[in-house]
Design a protein around this nucleic acid. Structure first.
Lengths: 200, 200
DNA sequence: CGAAGAATGGACTGATGAGTCCAAAGTAGC
DNA sequence: GCTACTTTGGACTCATCAGTCCATTCTTCG
């Protein structure tokens, strides 16, 4: 739980390990990355790995999970944080699609989600928190559109935001599974366009 | 590639292995299931595993993948195959939500998708085919609604079906990742309800 | 029956990979 | 520059697990 006392050098090494591990895992998947691979890729020794992550691989994987979860949000900025007009929503949409299209090898989220051990509550927490933050940005965005009158009053911001978030995640999952981007593209576009369709 | 000559007994054993492996994997994830576990759970011997799956674990995993892919479709029947009225769409929707809600431990699809090795083209093919079939049922359903005038002519069946399929997959992924069903419930409901909202 | 081939049992091998350990090198503050 | 602590190197252990091999028991069918 408690972080040990780390010197600047130590902190840098720790970070190097997490970053290197994250990269390897994106490229090859959790299963195919061993501590020795990480060691080699980050120019460290076995003892360093266990020095900075006393509980071993699980510990390190959790650190990677946290890093990647933050990354997922960070990659969408600044657009995600400023969904105040229809035009900006479109910019975010394009950004997301482009983002996943480019790094189709390694969607950080999917690598995380897909390969977590069933019942791993800590990782679940990390992912859950990330999704909460993500959802909140979307809710804020929908509310902004509603406030400015760009979409109908009858739109429920939380429900709409949830639908959009799910479209992104579903699209990303299917992208990884099938290497086809069209699910993401279509579903996200439809979900956003639906904001402008009047409810009945 | 070619199946060997199997006696009835042999075929039964093979099936027992695939079924047992599938169950174990749903419960514990691919990573935590070894050939010895499968051997124990199915009352078989090592030589049997390699007799029926000459290429070893990868071979067996592929058989499991195929089985599970079929299962995903089969579990939604007969509703999925007869989405001809609005009422039937609702029945299917409830069915899907209930299905995932109950077996939240082991969504066959997610277990598959999440844990496949990156770049495993054969598994990708299996998943891709399954999604194609699934999508086709949805497209047929949307077209039926359109033909009967229950929804607007302007609805694009393929796009709408894609959005719905993505909602299910995204919801399922997030269910596994967070143990929360609400993403699936909300996103699927919204995606289906959007069918009835007039385009502009 | 009686061979040919299918099905089964289970010991054995070899590789891999997580985690341990101790000793050495660096660093900080007094 | 001395002591306490952090950081680093890397060999070693031990368990796990996929895959091999051969011997034995069934089945089928002429």
């Amino acid at each position: 739980m408690e972080e040990r006392v780390l010197t600047a050098k130590g902190a840098a090494t720790r970070q190097r390990i997490v970053d290197g591990a994250a990269l390897l895992i994106r490229e090859q998947g959790v299963v195919n990355v061993g501590l020795d691979d990480i060691r080699a890729a980050t120019a460290t020794s076995k003892s360093q790995l266990f020095h900075y992550f006393p509980d071993g691989k699980a510990d390190l994987m959790l650190a990677v999970a946290r890093r990647e979860a933050d990354q997922v949000i960070a990659e969408q900025m600044p657009q995600l944080g400023d969904l105040t007009t229809w035009r900006k929503w479109q910019a975010w949409r394009r950004r997301v699609i482009k983002m996943y299209d480019e790094q189709r090898d390694g969607c950080a989220l999917s690598a995380l989600v897909g390969q977590l051990n069933l019942g791993d509550t800590t990782t679940r927490q990390v992912v859950g928190d990330m999704l909460d933050r993500w959802l909140q940005y979307l809710v804020d965005g929908v509310e902004a559109l509603r406030a400015s009158g760009e979409i109908d009053r009858s739109v429920d911001p939380v429900r709409a935001a949830t639908a959009i978030l799910t479209a992104v995640n579903g699209g990303a999952t299917m992208l990884v599974a099938t290497d086809r981007i069209n699910y993401l593209e279509t579903a996200l576009t439809e979900a956003i366009d639906d904001l402008r369709r009047p409810k009945r």
